[in-house]
Design a binder for these strands. Structure first.
Length: 137
DNA sequence: GCCAACGTTGGC
DNA sequence: GCCAACGTTGGC
């Protein structure tokens, strides 16, 4: 299984809205970046991802599961981009803030810090474990 | 194919 | 609201 991190502005799509969709999940549409697209195409059903709130909050708030692998993004008229379906798994007991990630030396190489503008990022197994631990899981 | 201009993202 | 980073566009 691989690990990922997806970003969303809570004013556009929040963790609470994701949770409200239940196990069926919701299409993760609107990605218009080729690096992010390649990451989504590498996602497999059952992979896990951190759900990160950008701008407001700036923290990892929960874990989602990939429930449907990539298919053409229905909101993309050009047909070039793809989306996946993700469903909320569980919230972190304590959100892991960007400040906390920056303060942890072992997370200095995280894409969240290195590639701050990328909206769909890979996370290593080591990073995953540590962030879960920091989140109280 | 290079590169300047411009737009977008996201932290501060 | 500003600005740095970075992707995209378009003229040459």
């Amino acid at each position: 299984m691989k690990y990922w991190l997806v970003k969303s502005e809570p004013s556009v799509w929040s963790w609470d809205q994701q949770v409200a969709k239940g196990k069926k999940g919701e299409a993760w549409t609107g990605v218009r970046n080729h690096s992010a697209k390649l990451n989504m195409m590498a996602m497999k059903k059952g992979d896990r991802a951190f759900f990160y709130h950008s701008n407001e909050g700036k923290e990892v708030v929960g874990i989602v599961e990939i429930v449907k692998e990539h298919y053409p993004d229905p909101t993309d008229e050009s047909g070039k981009f793809v989306c996946v379906d993700i469903a909320a798994d569980k919230p972190l007991k304590t959100p892991v803030t960007l400040v906390a990630v920056k303060a942890e030396k072992k997370l200095a190489e995280m894409a969240l810090l290195k590639l701050s503008r990328l909206s769909v990022q890979p996370v290593t197994a080591e990073e995953w474990k540590l962030v879960c631990k920091m989140g109280g899981l």
